[in-house]
């Protein structure tokens, strides 16, 4: 029994990393254009399906499948900017939001049309059998998830803090008008932002696929939890979104164990409502530095 607490924490951390990645994509888009993309969850699902089709159906090697996922998600991000963001962002505040809701629903059915309704099995990089450290059982895929998330966060940090492109993207997110006057190609930066966030979602799908199965509805709940993570962290704060997501994962695992796994999504919703009631600005608040 003594091993149960660290074990729950560990699984919670792993699942939470996924929500953190979804939330990160949310926040980047929100900071850049002030909108929430309700199809972000379906991008998670698409990432998983793209990888499965390459590796399982076309029998491509693992790395080719991953490359296919990256390119596919980039294309989806680009098409999304051109096809959904660009024609709707001027038509009132809900046009984009509703359009993304419509897209998310259409995508859920589209994958059924293409891949069928049966959940797909995603191959793993590592063996399925757990091993233990002390009396803590460790699922190897969880280690992959946590490791990849850390790696991704480092890459994101380097892109946004160290490269000219990343700095221009941040500048665009903070003040589009001033960015335009500084000679930045603002529409291009917005495309890059959407592409980046959809790649993040796709990788999240690739990571979570082996833990849950690959189904048309896998994105919907990931999106809600990514959103709750952003709220806990405070909208606008990038580390807040990641840590908030991790917290949601831990809450989910703990409540499945101690209360009921059937109710876990309802409990996450309860957490959202409680946070909105008592700490609507989240733990980190909307940071002045990122959005004024």
């Amino acid at each position: 029994m003594s091993g149960i607490l660290p074990q729950l924490l560990f699984s919670g951390l792993a699942i939470g990393c996924i929500y953190g990645l979804v939330g990160l994509g949310f926040i980047q888009v929100y900071n850049a254009v002030g909108l929430t993309n309700f199809a972000q969850g379906e991008f998670v699902m698409l990432g998983a399906y793209l990888f499965v089709s390459a590796v399982v159906i076309w029998k491509a090697p693992f790395w080719v499948g991953f490359l296919f996922l990256l390119v596919g998600m980039a294309v989806i991000g680009f098409l999304f900017t051109r096809g959904v963001y660009k024609p709707t962002y001027k038509a009132g505040r809900f046009a984009f939001l509703l359009a993304s809701v419509g897209l998310s629903m259409a995508l859920q059915d589209l994958v059924v049309l293409i891949w069928g309704p049966v959940p797909l099995y995603m191959p793993r990089l590592v063996s399925e059998s757990s091993f233990n450290i002390g009396n803590v059982f460790i699922n190897p895929q969880h280690i992959i998830i946590i490791g990849s998330t850390i790696l991704l966060l480092i890459i994101q940090y380097l892109i946004f803090q160290k490269t000219p492109l990343g700095k221009m993207m941040r500048a665009t997110a903070q003040d589009q008008f001033a960015a335009t006057l500084s000679g930045i190609k603002v529409p291009l930066m917005i495309i890059f932002t959407f592409v980046n966030s959809s790649i993040l979602a796709g990788i999240a799908g690739f990571l979570v696929g082996p833990v849950f199965s690959v189904t048309p509805s896998m994105g919907a709940s990931a999106m809600l939890k990514g959103f709750v993570g952003c709220t806990i962290g405070g909208w606008g704060s990038i580390p807040g979104a990641v840590l908030g997501g991790i917290l949601v994962g831990i809450i989910e695992i703990f409540s499945s164990f101690y209360i009921s796994s059937a109710y876990k999504d309802a409990i996450v919703f309860l957490v959202l409502i409680l946070f909105l009631l008592f700490k609507p600005k989240g733990i980190f608040g909307e940071t002045v530095s990122e959005k004024v």
Binding site: K167, R170, A171, Q174, F177, A179, S182, I184, S289, K291
Partner: peptide, 20 residues
Amino acid sequence: RRVFPGLTVLENLEVGASGW
């Protein structure tokens, strides 16, 4: 003024140059 509030002074200047 509309400086980029969340960027450092140096980054503001770099963006002014790299945009161009």
